[in-house]
Write a protein that binds this DNA or RNA. Structure first.
Length: 605
DNA sequence: AGTCTTCGCGCG
DNA sequence: AAAGCGCGCGAAGACT
């Protein structure tokens, strides 16, 4: 109500703010806090208001009347500030010279109980408390000389709701859930660094890639159009129209075996299936059509998702860098996501349409620097072995070769992984273990591996026989989920599984989460390492110029001055080993990480 | 004209 | 009852 009595105290001088903070937030007392700023980044604006809310206080502070936020920032050092999306507020504290201010992310308090997700405050207020938030003032003019009553009320409501949600989620936190929350909160400084740094794009190289793709695309359109007129398929990009077309021209025995889309039940037109069809039509014009269409789809995907958008984003920034958002625990399991652009989905180096293509080569180190990168090898199988206490699986991971064992079973005789046959069989066998990690049944495995259900069943039986504890782990998880609706993860957090928990998720979530846990400890540790070295850096060893750039689930990427790159790699290895041991004390660290140093992301060795 | 859903596909 | 996990993004087409 616009006419309601003010629920908060207006704080409008430095001395009042100082006195109040000393009185109520002197030794780690918690309070919810929310900024209203005139811009999204400290370089471009200022903090106008902060609303503060706890059981004892309800304040609205106008920094324009208190000498400005820069002057006031240090006053917040003794409190613990509950913030929704604390990375935002932390940036302003850092920019104002108060980087040690302690913030707790409300979203992480919730994620520690429910599992990850990327939700707005408005959304969770509605879900968890049934509160409807009005966000109309969010983008209003926070630089105005005089703020409206509606703006002030809005500013206050955010902190008020944040505090209510904080109480809601933390009043029954178990110690484990608290630990999980702290684990996620500890990622914030590293994520701020990644988002600030971004990654440099070699626009020129990327442009030549895009030019090549477009040339290929043009050729493919010509081929497709000689086979199918635009009267038959008007929009060459439309799978719907292609599906309708095939439904008309293909014989019934092809159509009956044609996979359908899930919701609408149309003929599915994935490029994988098109290539299979091409294989069934060798020597006919249909082979050319299916192959050309599959190729066209691939190259079109590259152009639309990894072509112009990357160049545009890079050119939008003055320094030619792309700055993706790095979203903590955006996935249900706690994994990161990245967006705008999503650097976690940049294609690996591989042959596309017979041409060796390296999109990652366009992601380069700054002048005088190198990219430094390590990834955990086989981290998910490894953590499954450790979670389930499966001795044989761990032994095979450390001293043996899981995939080769499975491959030999599949072929029915011993294999040498150095031969071509051995390599291929081993590659195929990886699919079995992935299937296990994903909780696949025989049918699912058969369809992804393109084999019979009977054979898939045999593979799974073999896996279960060799690694009984690892295989049986899913049933323990499932039992917990059915009993409590939650599963408990290795870091002490929980994930809500809904009223009807399903086996594939129960098999996979704890594994994916444990891998995330390991990476989370590593990231926090590595950031501390770099900060420590950066503070003590000398002119000849500029550790203050080493930055974390990105994490791709099981990989970590830094940028470092060339002279420090090798050293940085060692630091990273140490920190990643530490992260793993923090989650699995005493676990074997043999062959844990691999990677290296390079000019660009395409080649790190 | 703007928003939502579906499909497909890149990555781990 | 049956079940291969997790994301973000672009395009098409439907819906409002």
């Amino acid at each position: 109500m616009a006419t309601s009595k003010r629920k908060y105290r207006a704080v409008s001088s430095y001395s009042a703010l100082s006195k109040l903070l000393k009185k109520f937030f002197y030794a780690g007392q918690h309070g919810a806090l929310d900024f209203e700023t005139t811009a999204l980044r400290p370089a471009e604006g200022r903090v106008r208001l902060v609303s503060i809310c706890s059981d004892k206080v309800s304040w609205l502070v106008d920094f324009d009347k208190c000498g400005g936020f820069r002057k006031c920032a240090k006053l917040f050092k003794h409190g613990r500030w509950v913030v929704f999306n604390s990375g935002f507020e932390m940036r302003w504290f850092i920019a104002a010279g108060a980087p040690k201010t302690r913030c707790i992310d409300l979203a992480n308090a919730r994620r520690a109980v429910m599992g990850g997700g990327n939700y707005s405050l408005k959304q969770i207020a509605l879900w968890d408390l049934g509160i409807e938030m009005n966000k109309e003032e969010q983008a209003s003019n926070w630089g105005a000389k005089k703020l409206t009553r509606s703006q002030l009320d809005y500013a206050y409501d955010d902190a008020d709701t944040t505090w209510k949600l904080w109480l809601h989620w933390t009043k029954d936190h178990t110690p484990g859930q608290h630990d999980a929350m702290v684990m996620l909160d500890n990622l914030v400084p590293a994520i701020i660094e990644m988002e600030e740094q971004g990654i440099l794009i070699d626009v020129k190289h990327h442009q030549t890639l895009v030019d090549g793709w477009e040339e290929t695309q043009t050729k493919l359109i010509t081929i497709l159009r000689t086979l199918v007129s635009d009267g038959e398929v008007r929009n060459i990009n439309s799978d719907t129209q292609w599906g309708d077309y095939f439904a008309v021209i293909m014989p019934d025995n092809w159509l009956s075996a044609w996979p359908r889309t899930e919701k609408a039940g149309r003929l599915s037109c994935t490029s994988a299936h098109l290539r299979r069809l091409a294989g069934n039509a060798t020597g006919t014009p249909l082979e050319t059509l299916f192959d050309a269409l599959a190729d066209y789809k691939t190259v079109t995907k590259y152009i639309s998702s990894f072509g112009r958008t990357i160049i545009n984003t890079a050119q939008l920034a003055v320094d030619g860098r792309v700055r993706p958002r790095v979203n903590i625990a955006a996935a249900r399991t706690g994994r990161f996501s990245t967006s705008g652009p999503n650097v976690q989905q940049i294609p690996r180096n591989k042959d596309i349409l017979g041409e060796p293509t390296s999109v990652r080569k366009s992601f380069i180190a700054s002048r005088g620097c190198r990219l430094v990168s390590l990834d955990y090898s086989g981290i998910e199988l490894r953590v499954l072995a450790l979670l389930s206490g499966d001795k044989q699986l761990l032994e095979d991971m450390i001293n043996g070769d899981v995939h080769l064992e499975v491959a030999q079973e599949m072929v029915g005789r011993p294999l040498d992984k150095k031969t071509k046959e051995g390599k291929e069989a081993r590659q195929k066998a990886k699919g079995v273990s992935f299937g296990i990690i994903y909780g696949s049944g025989a049918r699912g495995l058969a369809s992804t591996m393109r084999t019979s259900v009977g054979r898939a069943e045999r593979y799974i039986d073999f896996w279960e026989g060799r690694y009984p504890d690892a295989f049986g782990y899913r049933h323990k998880v499932m039992a917990e989920a059915e009993r409590t609706r939650f599963i408990t993860t290795v870091d002490g957090g929980t994930i809500y599984m809904g009223k009807n928990p399903d086996l594939p998720k129960c098999a996979n979530y704890p594994v994916q989460r444990a891998a995330l846990s390991v990476m989370a400890r590593s990231i926090a540790r590595h950031k501390r390492t770099l900060d420590r070295l950066g503070e003590a850096s000398q002119p000849q060893a500029r550790w203050d110029r080493v930055f974390m750039l990105a994490t791709i689930h099981d990989a970590l990427i830094d940028e470092a001055p060339t002279k420090l790159a090798k050293n940085c790699l060692h630091m990273m290895e140490e920190d990643m080993t530490y992260g793993y041991l923090a989650v699995f004390p005493g676990a074997p660290t043999d062959r844990l990480v691999e990677g290296g140093v390079g000019q660009h992301w395409g080649a790190l060795s």
